[in-house]
Structure formats: C-alpha cells, structure tokens
Design a protein around this nucleic acid. Sequence first.
DNA 1: AAATAATAAAGGATTTTAACTGTATTTGGT
DNA 2: ACCAAATACAGTTAAAATCCTTTATTATTT
Lengths: 222, 222
Amino acid sequence: MPIKQPMRLALVDDHTLFRKGLISLIKMVCNDCEIVFEADNGNDLQLKLNKQTIPDIILMDVNMPFMDGFATVEWLNKNYPQIKVLVVSMITKEDSIVRMLKLGVKGYLCKDVEPNELGDALNAIMDKGFYYTDFITGKLVHSLQKIDTQNEKHSGIRLMNDREKDFLKLACSELTYNQIAAQMYLSPKTIDGYRDALFDKLQVKSRVGMALYAVKYGLVQL
Amino acid sequence: MPIKQPMRLALVDDHTLFRKGLISLIKMVCNDCEIVFEADNGNDLQLKLNKQTIPDIILMDVNMPFMDGFATVEWLNKNYPQIKVLVVSMITKEDSIVRMLKLGVKGYLCKDVEPNELGDALNAIMDKGFYYTDFITGKLVHSLQKIDTQNEKHSGIRLMNDREKDFLKLACSELTYNQIAAQMYLSPKTIDGYRDALFDKLQVKSRVGMALYAVKYGLVQL
DNA sequence: AAATAATAAAGGATTTTAACTGTATTTGGT
DNA sequence: ACCAAATACAGTTAAAATCCTTTATTATTT
C-alpha cells in the first residue's frame, strides 16, 4: 500500500497575523501537511519559489501590495502550472470571483469560513482537483445569466421578427447574401430588405457590426 | 406552524417509458409530491400548461422532437418565469450544459443518476433554489477557461504578427478598410495585404468570418 | 369595404470587399 | 556582401455589400 505523501502547502497573504492564524488552523484540521513557505505577496512568492519549495497547493489572497492575486495566479499559470491555487479572500465581488475562476483557481473561500471547511477544501483539491462551494457556483451561474438578462433590456432584440432572426443567424457566417436568400427560399432583394431593417433596428452600419451585435447579445453562439 | 404544501412536479420527455420510470422513482424518494402533468415535448407542454397546472418544478429532457429543451426553457422563461426547471438528460456535452445554465435552469442531472440524488436535487431546488453538482460546476468552470486554452491550440493566433493583430481589432468594427488604413497610418493597399494574410492564416473567407473568429478566440472583447 | 400594416420583391447606383499579380524597400542571417 | 524573408504598397477586376426608391400581395384593423 502506497505511503501517502504529506500535503505541501504555501501561503501568500500580506497580513502576517492572518497567515499565522491560518497556519495554526491548518495544523488542527490536517495532521499530515507541511508549510513549505509563506510570502507577503506575488513578488515575494517569486523569490521564495524554487525547485525545492514547490507546494501542491498555494493559499492565496487577492488584495496584496506590489503584486496582487490576479497577477500572481497568471504568473503561476505560466511558470508553475502544476501548482493548484486556493483563493482565501475577503472579496466576494462576483467579478473578482469569476475572474479568478477564469484564471483556473481550484477553489475560492471566504476568510470567515469554518476551519472544517478549509480542511474539506484542501482535501477535495488534492483528491478531485477542485472545491467549489454553492456560494461560488451561485455567483458563477448568476454571472452567466447576467449577460442574457442584460440583453432583454437591449432594445433591438424585441423589434426583430422571426424571419429577421433567422436571417441574422445566417448573416453570422461566410455565406453571401445571395446564398442566404437561396437557403431561406427568398429573393436576394428580400434579404436586402431584411438587412436594411436590421441595420436600422440594431443601430449598426455594416454586416460586421450586425454579426458582432448578434454575438454580443447572445442571439447566435459561436 | 405552516402546513407544507406538496411539491408540484411536471415531466417533459419524449420517452414514455423513461417518464413513467422516473415518476415511480420520484414517488419512492419523495413522499409528498404530486405529478401535475406529463408532456412529450415543448409543444405538448404548451398545451397542457395552464393556471390549474402550474408546477413548482419541471423535469425536462433536452433532445425532444418538434420543440427541444432549449426552446422550451426559453418559452417558459418568457411565459412562466416562476417555474423552476431541472434538466434530466443523457447529454453531457459541455456546450449543452452551459447553454442550459445560461437559460437559468436550476439543476442538471444525468439520466443515470442515483434515485437519492434525484430527491436531493428536488429538495435543494425547493429549499435554496438550485442544485448544481460538482460535475456541472466542473464543466462550467472548464468552459470559462476553455476560451483561453483553446487559443493556444488554434494555430492562427501564433501566426499573426503585432500589426496584423492591431488590424484585426480594428476590423472588428464598422470602419471600412480605408478608414482603418488611415488610423494605422498605412496605405489601403497594405491593409489589403493584411486582410489577405489573415484570411489565409485564420482560414476564413470574409471579414465577417474574420471578426467572428477574433471574438470566438478572445482576440477582441465585445 | 376601406385604410393600414406587414411582408416580399424589383431596379438602379455607388461603395466596399475580395482575389490576383507584381514591385520596391528593408531586415536579419551567414 | 549576398540571400531570403518580411514589409509596404500598386494596378486591375470581379464580386459583394450598401443605399435608395418604388411596387405588388397579403393580413389586420377599423
């Protein structure tokens, strides 16, 4: 039976007191882990990270002086993609969470989290690669939908009729208007009319503008 | 103390046998729920749904004849936004899952799910409004990151030089090539050359195709 | 039944885009 | 110094897109 390696952790947070507190909590919930180093911010991390000190997981703050969490995770992705990042931050802004998730962090915890959940998160990340709470998932799903609900507001969409929507989808391609006309069983001149109508309704001046509008407001998917 | 209302459910799935099986499972895991109706597809749902038959949750398939899950959820969002949708589908394609989540479905289960999890999902949706499994969350987070990692794969991007990238950004607008040339302090003929080069490198045949490529692979943001 | 609105389509003119071929000039490498 | 490449640009045609005006045919409303 394989000997379980101790979990190697590193902490990046500019608040020394919080860092020390976090370490003592980790020791309590996880009896087989090792803190390989602590850093005050991204710059400090770059200095302290080398072949001997590569951790499995880095617990990372977002707001830090000199080099913040976003820049640090980007740098880690480029230079040490194997290291997993668990964000531990006060920041609950949806945009920040989504931005971090886009950067590929494996979890995102609020600093007021229960010690046990911290342990769960670390184990889950080691075990299955990530730990996303309902809170994070909720934010994520909400941010996905935000785009669509914004759209409803956006005028042009309601003004379009079904044929025009069909045409718009086809216009977001490399077909010429003649080919679109053929596909829709309509005269090219009718297509001309649809285009003119949509230019007016969507407030665009070219087919490129129209196509980008359609993508922006989710009327066609790429 | 308030009397707990029974959970009102409806099923939309074109496979009668699966529907019936699902109902018997629901009866087993949930002793206080009522099936208000079943439908074969979205069209059928529209006929069967009225003031007397408004369910709390609709269990919805994705692939259905005549009117599929996407169209049906869109219609529900417009006409009965209070009804929560739980997708129960064989489809595990990331794009389908993300598209459904964008439409605001409250959960997404695979058809091979354990009966107990079905019960958990229904209760979670009634209780806190949603039920997203790790599988779904994983797909979601992955799709967020995909755009960036896909780029690396997609050849065209590496082949472009800086001037061509600048041009590409400007081409994703309603400027004519002459106007772009002026903005870049270049001859329109040089712009012609950039366009021809990019058409070749990105494998597109028109400015629309080029603009959509740029958006798809995150080279320009809308 | 008449007026109105929506849909489909035509003619004609102009601009923009696209495709192809070719030529100086510059730049990096050996 | 010489070769190869990348860069900037020109000419020519053809095709596609854009703009504008007008008309015939259905639906819808009054």
